[in-house]
Amino acid sequence: MTATLPRELTHLEVLESESIHIIREVAAEFEKPALLFSGGKDSIVMLRLAEKAFWPARIPFPVVHIDTGHNFPEVIEYRDKRVAELGVKLVVGSVEDAIAAGKVVEETGPRASRNRLQTAVLLETIAAGKYDAVFGGARRDEEKARAKERVYSFRDEFGQWDPKNQRPELWDLFNGRRRVGEHIRVFPISNWTELDIWQYIQDDGIEIPSIYFAHERPVFERDGMWMAEMGVMPHLPGEVVQNQVVRFRTVGDMTCTAAVSSDARTVQDVIAEIAATRITERGASRADDKFSEAAMEDRKREGYF
């Protein structure tokens, strides 16, 4: 007897299933996993997948937020609401506290960003929580160094990634072995694209923070991008604050995440916009990678996501 498939799965169902498999594998094989939640759309989808992986049980690991202190209030509100709904524990690693305690030194000047400081706070939070696996919402389609990274990305005691010496990763058999002090960064949505994320948000009816949709806000132009005027960044000569209708394509620290001009007010509009765009999300909104060929690779080597 040859069985027949009930029906063909859609590509989103295949991706969802792959991600759930990875998340369950980690929960089963590690002692203390944690899920890194930035408030961005990717970590929102990742959190949703974790919810699905264990239903009707609760997510069996905490959610960690590395808080740069430069957050959009909508994102923090969203985070707190979601954490309460899911009944998971929230652990916050604060860059501001680390600065106050003299553990890291704030950059100065108009181009100061806390993006780099995040790495030190992330590593400290991982060490303090003794986490042996940390889920991140990075996607391989985001950037050329990410395109090279394994689903299970081994990190040494210093949190460093060694791109020339990655473990082979075969089929869906993941090797999570590590010594004390080492950990694995796990990327369950490695194979999703930006468009997949939005189609999933649409199909699944996932709520996301309002800053992802077109709205009017004060911004100023820097390096050809709209930066939000939040009273955090000093201006360079000639930078004028003005009101523009914009939305965010990625959400991170406000000093390195730019908005894009857009009138996409619904998920459907956003999908249409992304399907037609000729610029990648990093190209459109990330100030942190513009300056060097291998900026992302270098940051990852230092322990960044």
């Binding site: 590509h11 050329k144 020339k164």
Partner: peptide, 29 residues
């Protein structure tokens, strides 16, 4: 260079590790 994304790969002009890329047409992903 669209797939050879690591610094060492670009310097040596060879691929060292797998790169994953994604695209779709109206028919398939």
């Amino acid at each position: 260079l669209l797939t050879d994304g690591l610094r060492a790969e670009r310097e040596q002009g060879i691929t060292i590790d797998v790169a994953y890329r994604y695209f779709h047409t109206p028919k398939r992903k």
